[in-house]
């Protein structure tokens, strides 16, 4: 039983990064119904930006600065690259995001090289002398179950992002406008919402959330240009499992993908952990075609 609990905890800590990237994917899908394949590479790229900031400043200022930079990169991409294909067939926007994937990957390779770079763990949060020790220090233990501080920190960050987005979407005028845009762009335009701005904002937000995911990934692995490739696929699986239009679903979906992966590896056959995890996802999708928390698409004829 304790072993099982430990597996679940390990799964949750792996899954927390999937959850953040899934959240970023959901943010873009909700506002533009585009699945952004470049999400992982954007996160990788912005993490390299953090890395170059880190040469000059402390961790948290560098982190915050990256988020701001990522926001503007995301918004700029929507305006320059995505807008021209807005009205084209749906697959075209997917191909454009794949083009972005290639561009980010190759520019990062050119600029930063193929070698792994060491990346520090985030500093603890300190105000004066009192510190919230969730990123560095000894692992937490409860019985035989242990979880590293860093993983607790990552989970905490994932939850914070979700709460912040929830508050923004549900209790601010901006959030209301963004939801309206996602639901019915034409009607939103008629009531005076600047739809184009909302779409750019959606991409900006997603890029910012992706930047957080990138930094967290780099802290738990190392920083390299291909670090997000696998994570993106699991992030996708998480987003789809939770339902592509539900931020809460993205978190739960991402965490469950991590747990599935660890449990399948331990209890079914470690050689086929991916296969087992994806078989579960496939089965869940067949039973619930729009994910666990996704809205059913009702189309008017």
């Amino acid at each position: 039983m304790e072993e099982f609990a430990q597996q679940v905890v390990t799964g949750v800590s792996i899954g927390s990064i999937y959850a953040i990237i899934a959240l970023a994917i959901v943010l873009i899908y909700r506002s533009t119904s585009v699945v952004n394949f470049a999400q992982g590479e954007m996160a990788m790229f912005t993490t390299f930006i953090t890395w170059s900031f880190l040469l000059r400043m402390d961790f948290w200022p560098a982190f915050l600065l990256t988020i701001v930079v990522a926001f503007f990169i995301g918004a700029a991409l929507e305006i320059v690259v995505m807008r021209p294909v807005e009205r084209a067939p749906h697959l075209n926007s997917i191909v454009v995001t794949l083009g972005l994937l290639a561009i980010f990957n190759s520019v990062a390779l050119w600029r930063y090289g193929p070698l792994q770079k060491p990346f520090p763990d985030p500093d603890n949060w300190c105000i004066g002398d009192s510190c919230l020790e969730i990123f560095q220090g000894d692992a937490f233990t409860a019985g035989a179950v242990t979880i590293s501080r860093l993983n607790v920190g990552i989970l905490f960050v994932a939850l914070m992002i979700m709460v912040a987005l929830f508050l923004m979407f549900n209790y601010t005028k901006l959030g209301l406008a963004m939801r309206a845009t996602a639901l019915n762009p034409v009607a939103s335009q008629l009531v005076g919402i600047n739809v184009s701005r909302m779409l750019a904002l959606g991409w900006g937000l997603a890029a910012a959330v992706g930047a957080v995911a990138g930094v967290m990934t780099a802290s738990s692995l190392n920083l390299s240009i291909d670090m997000m490739a696998g994570i993106l696929i699991f992030g996708f699986a998480g987003a789809v499992l939770g339902g592509l239009d539900s931020p809460g679903g993205a978190i739960i979906g991402g965490l469950s993908v991590g747990v599935f992966q660890v449990l399948a590896g331990n209890y079914i056959d470690s050689q086929i952990d991916l296969m087992a995890a994806f078989a579960i996802i496939f089965i869940v999708l067949v039973i619930r075609p729009t994910g666990l928390f996704g809205r059913r698409l009702v189309r008017r004829v």
């Binding site: 696929i233 699986a237 592509l244 991916l274 296969m275 994806f278 496939f282 075609p289 729009t290």
Partner: peptide, 26 residues
């Protein structure tokens, strides 16, 4: 049959991700 759009894309993605593992299985 029950899946459309991105959901179908991910289901098919699941198959290709699992493929190498299956082929290498003991």
């Amino acid at each position: 049959l029950r899946l459309t759009g991105p959901y179908l894309a991910i289901a098919t993605l699941a198959i290709i991700v699992s493929m190498p593992q299956f082929l290498k299985w003991d």
